[in-house]
Nucleic acid binder design. Structure first.
Length: 478
RNA sequence: GGCGCAUUCGUCUAGUGGUUUAGGACGCUGGCCUCUCACGCCGGUAGCACGGGUUCGACUCCCGUAUGCGCUACCA
């Protein structure tokens, strides 16, 4: 059943923070691409920045990926474990004259850069150490002068066909003889990615736009090594409402935050898929399988997109509404335990869910909208009090309905509604004149699900008790 | 500053030279439903950044301008 197309992609987060929305979308595109083509979706943790990386972050990223259902193939590759291999490749580059030692000090370079900037020009390495003689090199090494290794950038230009955008072409001059090995002997990102992608057999590099200008440099490394260059596809950034690259400044940006904020993984996936990509028809709600089915890199757009929480919320609501009551109960459970509501029966919860489901946009809405089902209201919404309680004859009408409800035989929706409407007719008032005060009394709120459904679920005892309290409250104010 | 990338309703997008009075969705909004809210349904609102070309014809092709974003580290 499982077959492979030879297509291999990867997601390569660096564990310097939590998985953020942008990273998740990149991961998703890679995942969809792999699954659509029967390829492999690999994971590589780029943990070579030891100062900023830590295992906890790695774990968090993995958890988020799992939560989103972006399952990966094969073993996770940890970039830090490949350092020796990366060093060996750098050595290889030196041996083949594709790279050279540079003895310029950080300070010297800094000065030159600042000078260049001051005179308005762009700074590029001046090539001072590009062609040192063997003797001088040996001598400097002898003198223990620290050095870095620079890539010997060939002349000409580098052109490549990005799968997402048009052809990209840059002058190699702009690429500079960039450093590939630091003076402390550690390889730099550019070589690590190339070596790892090559070793992992990556065929397509799908990553964020911010790497676009890295691509030509990396292509040059591939060529210097005589390695096959993978296909590149650079996906546009996700922006905040101010059109700036999405960051913490814009509020929640981590996937885990969206989880705790009550979003469903399926909804997030669906929404993220529609940022800079579309199936080409008018579908907006697409299941995971429909996404896999429809996904092609060619349909990724070149435009950055603004992350719109409001639309995500709308989509999340759609997904919540499409859940069965039992499924929704499972989603609610973690929160319930936290609120020590686990003693409530599932049967009751299921009934409550069917009342509240249509009104939920986020999982977290449930707690906010259901509290009066667990405890009598103590506060009453001011606006509703003004509108429905502090009016002529309300207490009297409530008292009558209490009597009626106390003597009702079958405590069900139909009976409760009939009694109330009949009473309204008798009193020659609109049914609302009874319904709203009752609602306020039992819930403390101006808005709730259908009142008769609420009354049934609440039960006779609780309803009568709350109605009496309501009447007392009103009388105490007049 | 240099280099690169981009530019369709407020937002996400469809559109690949004539089928378009530019379609859908979110939002906003009018109405229906109705015990309130929500859901649902019906309707409305609003857009091809600008200027030149190319062409019988341009949202679609080319060139400028503007704007935005990204990169420009011994970070990844």
């Amino acid at each position: 059943m499982e077959r492979s197309s030879g297509i291999r992609v990867r997601f390569a987060p660096s564990p310097t923070g939590w998985l953020h929305i942008g990273g998740a979308r990149t991961a998703l595109f890679n995942w969809l691409f792999a699954r659509h083509n029967d390829g492999k979706f690999l994971l590589r943790v780029e943990d070579t920045d030891r100062e900023r990386s830590n295992a906890e972050m790695t774990q968090g990223i993995l958890d988020s990926l799992r939560w989103l259902g972006l399952d990966w193939d094969e073993e996770i590759v940890y970039q830090s474990k490949g350092i020796n291999r990366h060093k060996a490749i750098v050595q290889n580059l030196i041996d083949n004259n594709k790279a050279y030692r540079c003895f310029c000090s950080t300070d010297e370079l800094k000065e030159k850069r600042e000078a260049a900037e001051k005179s308005g020009g762009a700074y590029l390495y001046d090539g001072l150490c590009r062609d040192l003689s063997k003797e001088t090199i040996a001598q400097k090494i002898d003198e223990n002068i620290p050095y870095t290794i620079r890539f010997r950038m060939p002349e000409g230009s580098t052109e490549f066909d990005d799968t997402v955008r048009n052809n990209v072409c840059v002058q190699n001059r702009e690429l500079d003889d960039f450093i590939i090995l630091r003076s402390d002997g550690t390889p730099v990102y550019q070589v690590a990615v190339v070596v790892d992608d090559h070793d992992m057999g990556i065929t397509h590099v799908i990553r964020g736009d911010d790497h676009l200008s890295n691509a030509p440099k990396q292509i040059q490394i591939y060529r210097a090594l005589n390695w096959e260059v993978p296909c590149f596809g650079h996906v546009p950034m996700i922006l905040g409402p101010d059109k700036k690259r999405l960051s913490k400044r814009h509020g929640a940006t981590s996937v885990s935050q969206y989880k705790t904020d009550g979003f469903l993984a399926e909804a997030l996936i669906n929404y993220l898929a529609l940022l800079s990509w579309s199936p080409g028809d008018d579908r907006e709600i697409l299941s995971r399988n429909e996404l896999i089915d429809a996904f092609t890199v060619e349909r990724i757009s070149r435009n950055a997109s603004v992350f719109d929480v409001v639309k995500l919320e709308w989509m999340n609501a759609k997904y919540i509404h499409s859940l069965s009551n039992i499924e929704l109960l499972e989603e609610l459970r973690p929160d319930m335990d936290a609120k020590a509501l686990s003693s409530v029966s599932d049967k009751f919860m299921l009934q409550l869910i069917s009342l509240l489901k249509e009104r939920m946009k986020r999982i977290t809405d449930f707690n906010e909208q259901s509290h009066y089902f667990f405890t009598d209201p103590v506060d009453f919404e001011e606006k509703a009090v003004k509108k429905h309680w502090l009016k002529e004859g309300v207490a009297e009408r409530l008292s009558i309905i209490i009597k009626k409800y106390e003597s009702i035989e079958n405590w069900n929706e139909q009976a409760l509604e009939d009694v109330l409407r009949n009473l309204a007719e008798e009193l020659e008032v609109g049914a609302g004149k009874l319904i709203h005060p009752v609602r306020l009394a039992v819930s403390g709120l101006g808005n709730t699900p259908g009142i008769f459904e609420v009354l049934v679920l609440l039960g006779r005892e609780s309803v009568i008790r709350r109605l009496y309290r309501g009447v007392e409250w009103i009388k105490s104010k007049s």
